[in-house]
Amino acid sequence: MELLYGIFIDPWIQMVSLPDFFVQVLWEGFVSGVLYSLIALGFVLIFKASGVFNFAQGIMVVFAALAMVGIYELGVPGWLSVIIALGIMYALAFSVERFVMRPLVGQDDIILFMATIGLTFILIGGGQAIFGGEPKAMLTSEIGLPSGDYVWEMGGGIVIFQKLDIAATVIAGALIAGLAFFFSYTKIGRALRAVADDHQAAVSVGIGLNQIWVVVWFAAGIVALVTGIMWGAKSDVSFALQIVALKALPVLVLGGFTSIPGAIVGGLIIGIGEKVFEIYWGGLMGGGVESWFAFIIALIFLLFRPQGLFGDKIIERV
């Protein structure tokens, strides 16, 4: 009886009686949702253009952030280390295309997927060997990110909005808008969409696949760097982020592997959902449910709608 009360009644009473706290929880969930969306976006970019399910996207986030901090620690100014980190991500995109994707073109999807797990290990080992394995503090004020917070009074209490979180949301929005512009209005962006629709047709009208892949992997690298900066500023830059980044996978399941709006909506649902669940229901189960909530939601969702929120129904053919 007490358990049923804890599950079905108490959480709602909590939410209504402490609205300021509830809004705070929603906001925190929203911010981590934005970050999940960004990681998922990196997945979607690569999946759309090459059909590759890039397991390494999560570690690319860590790697990019680590590279930036590592370079800054050498005494390079903040803005320059951002640019050099971008350069490193370009080099990575180029090498991945040249040494992993190109030799594997035409293989089964699952083989390419496993290759990206291999890539994950290369980036973990390489990142730790070059930049060190211990957690590092992210540059914030050095690259112009705000600190401090706004306090908003409501319902007899206060809600705190970190300026950093607000900046993260704005930057994420700008990044998504920028990518949308890039895909819709530039020549290479249009080529990229053509490749996403039909590989062979795109090749036959003279679009170079290799170049396109470098571009999408670089775009995914930029998204990774931005995600890494935001995330690193909230906690620290460490390889533990890699596990958290895997939550982008259930986001993709919810949103569909090829849909950018899906990635954003899915990310927000997961972000807010897991925070609310953890705070209001997690205690009943001993806490820590954030580690699996997203996956189990995705799993249940899959059983009813295997194609995702925005995906098309799959018709099987023989």
Binding site: G118, L119, F121, I122, L123, I124, G125, Q128, A129
Partner: peptide, 13 residues
């Protein structure tokens, strides 16, 4: 250890 991680990743690929 890190080198062996890289080596295993490279081997996989």
């Amino acid at each position: 250890e890190n080198i062996s991680l890289v080596a295993i990743g490279v081997m996989i690929v």
